[in-house]
Computed example of a mutant assay.
Amino acid sequence: MLYYIFKLMDRVKRKAYSKYYKRILNIHRSVSLGEVVLDKKNITIDKGSYIRSGEVASGEASVVIGRYCAIGSNVSIRARSHDFRVPTASDFNEENLRVHGDIIIGDYVWIGNNVFIRHGVKIGDHAIIGANSVVVSDVPDRAIYAGVPAKLIRINEELIEPELRSSVVGENEV
């Protein structure tokens, strides 16, 4: 019984955070946010996208996630990072330096579980990022990338455009 009470409390908390983030950020009302931590500025998420869990850190840069993106669990999208020249604070400077770079994720992108996306990266429309990948460079439209660091596996030539998908899905039903 106690388990179900905690599950219910967790669901209520997640729903409250989702409403809060949608109110202070530019997040479409149809977006589904799971257990996600978001910075409180410079984040845009368009219609129909979802994030299962992870973090989106924008810092002084911006993060833009397009329409109908499917983002898996434990995904880290970080538009800011430590500057390698002064990566930590010291007795001489109380702050560590940061580097920032906008991240743009196109429309209809699928990002697998446990993916890290580095600052300054652009991921094109209809791209697929394989699970456990580290994305450190731009990904072109329709590309399938995976690995550490993520590299081109192939271009998705079989892609069915979104406006044609309903007729194809109907053909494959058994």
Rank of each mutant, 00 (worst) to 15 (best):
D91G: 03
I45K: 01
Y21P: 04
H119M: 10
S76W: 10
Y20L: 02
R142N: 13
A89T: 15
I24S: 08
I45T: 09
I123F: 07
M9P: 13
A70L: 06
R14S: 12
A143M: 02
E161G: 06
V174D: 07
G48D: 05
Y108M: 07
G120H: 00
C69M: 07
E161P: 14
Y50W: 05
A61H: 01
L8E: 14
H126Q: 08
S90E: 02
S53R: 14
K7P: 13
I45L: 13
G147K: 07
L25N: 02
D39G: 09
S53I: 00
M9F: 15
R11A: 13
E35Q: 13
L159E: 13
A143F: 00
G120C: 01
H28F: 10
Y17I: 05
T44I: 15
A150V: 03
V37L: 06
L152V: 04
A127D: 00
K22A: 09
K41L: 09
H82W: 03
S133C: 02
V135L: 14
H119R: 11
I128G: 00
K7V: 08
N172F: 14
E35P: 14
R14Q: 11
S167K: 03
I144D: 01
K41S: 11
I24D: 13
Y20R: 10
K41A: 15
V36T: 03
V136E: 01
I144W: 02
S30T: 07
D39K: 03
N132W: 00
K41P: 10
R165I: 06
I155H: 01
N42G: 08
W110C: 06
K13R: 10
S167Q: 13
S53Y: 03
F116W: 12
K13F: 14
G34R: 14
I71A: 12
T44F: 04
V139G: 00
V139C: 05
L152S: 00
V134E: 12
A16M: 13
C69P: 04
V115P: 09
A143D: 00
D125I: 04
A127R: 07
I43S: 09
R154V: 01
N74S: 05
E60I: 01
H82V: 08
V174E: 11
Y145F: 02
I65G: 04
V31R: 14
V148R: 03
A70M: 08
N93I: 13
E157R: 08
V64I: 12
G112F: 00
H82R: 04
I155Q: 00
K40E: 11
V169T: 12
L33W: 03
I105E: 03
I43C: 05
V12G: 06
I103L: 10
D107S: 09
L8V: 06
I104R: 01
S53N: 12
L8N: 06
G48K: 14
P162E: 13
